[in-house]
Structure formats: structure tokens, C-alpha cells
């Protein structure tokens, strides 16, 4: 289990214990966070699990794939330098303390 922090779209900081191998998207859906939609369930087909990764953590993640990069351009909230699709961030012990923020809206 790894502990991460997700800041929901109402500014609330939620600490979540996540089983290694699950995605940040799945963790947010499991916690019932209102800032997460994740319509396609991890298929990189909908751009509704957009999140902003804290700068310090962004460089520690594997780079987004071409498909993810393309989809991020279609998210409802503005893309930034540290935008990711949360379904593509898979939790492992190296991400203990990871902090991401959900955008105001996913669609």
C-alpha cells in the first residue's frame, strides 16, 4: 500500500491508501471524489480523468505516451505543463506521498 494525496475540485485534500498497481484514477473513483469522472474507465478515450501533478512529482513519472499526450489536448480544463490522465499513473512504492490536484471540471 502506498499513501497519496488528491486535492479534489472543492480544494479538499484527501489522503488515500492505494494498493500498488492501481491507478490514481481508480483511487479517486474508489474514494468517490467529485472532481473525477473517468467515463471510459482507463481506455484513454475520454480525457475525463485529467489531473495536475505537483511539480516536484511530475518529473518522477514515466513520460506520457503519444495517445495520452494527444488526449490531454481535449480535456475540458486547461492543460498545463504537469497535466496527466490519472488513469495512466500507476501507483507503486516509489510514489509514496504523490500529490495531484483535480481540475474544476472534467467536462
Amino acid at each position: 500500500m502506498t499513501q497519496i494525496v488528491i486535492v479534489d475540485n472543492d480544494g479538499r485534500e484527501v489522503e488515500i491508501e492505494v494498493s500498488d498497481g492501481t491507478s490514481v484514477m481508480e483511487a479517486a473513483v474508489g474514494a468517490g471524489l467529485s472532481g473525477m469522472a473517468a467515463d471510459c474507465g482507463g481506455g484513454m478515450a475520454c480525457a475525463t480523468c485529467h489531473c495536475y501533478v505537483d511539480e516536484a512529482w511530475y518529473a518522477k513519472l514515466d513520460a506520457p505516451s503519444q495517445v495520452e499526450d494527444d488526449m490531454l489536448a481535449f480535456a475540458a480544463s486547461a492543460r498545463t505543463e504537469t497535466s496527466r490522465l490519472s488513469c495512466q499513473i500507476v501507483i507503486g512504492p516509489e510514489l509514496e506521498g504523490l500529490r495531484v490536484t483535480l481540475p474544476d471540471t472534467q467536462y
Partner: peptide, 22 residues
């Protein structure tokens, strides 16, 4: 079914995605 499915869907992402629709 996936994985082929997404190749088709991606074609229309610029139109039907949240940003496209807005």
C-alpha cells in the same frame, strides 16, 4: 473491442471530447 476500438474513437476525439464540444 479494445485494443482496436480506441483507434477508431481517437479519430473523432477532436470533435466529441470535452474541449471539442465546448
Amino acid at each position: 473491442d479494445p485494443p482496436e476500438h480506441n483507434k477508431y474513437r481517437a479519430i473523432l476525439a477532436p470533435v466529441f471530447s470535452p474541449a471539442g464540444v465546448s
